[in-house]
Amino acid sequence: MATFNVTINGKSQTVDADPTTPLLWVLRDHLQLVGTKYGCGIAQCGACTVHLNGVAVRSCQLPISSIGANEVVTIEGLSEKGDHPVQQAWLEHDVYQCGYCQAGQIMSASALLRSNPNPTDEDIEATMSGNICRCGTYNRIKDAIKTAANSGASS
């Protein structure tokens, strides 16, 4: 066990955990931030996607000891009022079915738009293929990303 100071959603947090504990389980078990989902544990499904300094990463692969001063943003902190353009676009298109993978989809999509404000279909497919949606909402995910791009999600 060791003590780690990490910044999650702009808030400084102290966590006592085994240094190998992935960020995913620190978020879910230690901090009760359960919006970030467990899907595979091997970075194959994207359900655990969070932002590390604004870049999409798979939190199941990041030991808590590696976070340091890097800023972590989870779905709970993507926007204060749940009104990030990507979240709004998701609501507008009623994207989800079961909803389980969608936090990861939204985190991947919002990071994509930050680095590429006007992605082509191929850009969207390339980035979003790391996130599995077992219900098959891929068409709506693409439509929602385009809507968010048009509303200025990169800002």
Partner: peptide, 27 residues
């Protein structure tokens, strides 16, 4: 009509069995 759980889904609120947390709970 929009999915009644939509806002909770896009903001990552606890909805699923795996999200259940209770005082004193073991894994």
């Amino acid at each position: 009509r929009k999915n009644v759980d939509g806002v909770k889904i896009v903001t990552g609120q606890p909805l699923f069995g795996l999200d259940v947390h209770k005082e004193g709970m073991l894994i």
